[in-house]
Amino acid sequence: MNKKIPNFIFTNQFGLLCLVLIFIVIFSTVTDGFTSRFNIFALSRVIAIDIMIGLAMMVVILTGGLNLALGAIGVCAAMFGGWCMEVLEIPIIPSILLMLGMGSFLGWINGFITVKTGVHSFIVTLATMSIYFGFMTMLTEAEAFRRLPELFTDFGSAKLFNKYISPLLLVSVATCFVLFYVFRFTDIGRKLIAAGANPEAAELSGISVNTMFIYCHILSGFLGALAAILLTTRIGAAIPSMAGQLGMDWLLPAFLAPVIGGTLLSGGKLSVFGTMLGAVLVTLLTNGLYLLDVGEFWIRFFLGIILLMAVLLDRTREYFTLRKVIVS
């Protein structure tokens, strides 16, 4: 009898899934309260936001670039939404659409400048990060919007499934499925990936690479705004420092999730569910270490080490993907 091992056993995602399960087992045995209803609920809210941040960075890494302004875009969208709801008293749904529009617009600016100048997105988004954040602070005078509609903040504290899971997680998982569909089953998704993998070849094959890259940046801004919406409903207010100075607190989780998940830093290969699992893994680790009374700074230390290891993995992965195909 020739039993065939299913292919997905050998994928990066399966490895990640095993790691996640191993950590769940470890943390639930060595810590108190890891499996408590309260902790799982808290975890699900954090995971939801980390997944979204990871996806937002992933779609720009796809182009071989990066988006340092992601956090700044998120905070700008949140503050804009807070202003819309609190000062202009615009209803929730239109406000959310406006926030998403704001995120997309700021992403478009990143993409437009990157494509038109040919400067690497590292420099462009480093500049826009400062510009967006500075502009936002100036307009809001660093004041938070704390009187948001109750319905809006209720969503962030709502509990589903016997009060274990936050609806925020459902939004993130649904977003994963939509992105998976786009990248796997649509022509535009395939074109985005092709443009990221080899811009010259894609261009000569009739793909408008510049347009594709701008789409990626718009999508990144959109997802960044979505992450900001989730975060705003979670903390119940739009606060300028919600993502740290210049929005930089988002950057570590933003890079960790996709890079651990198998998205190639040089572009052209991504994994939506890998990013999801990457975010889950990172959040689990952080949470578990907190419960073990490991200090905040040590956790940052560990996350940095993990990012470096993931990048190393990325290099070897790139080496092997290329080696497999260079024949002549």
């Binding site: 993998a197 080899n198 070849a201 052209g268 290329l322 195909v325 260079i326």
Partner: peptide, 10 residues
């Protein structure tokens, strides 16, 4: 072929 023709990682 390698640079402008094919996408080697696909």
């Amino acid at each position: 072929r390698k640079k402008e023709g094919l996408i080697l990682i696909h």
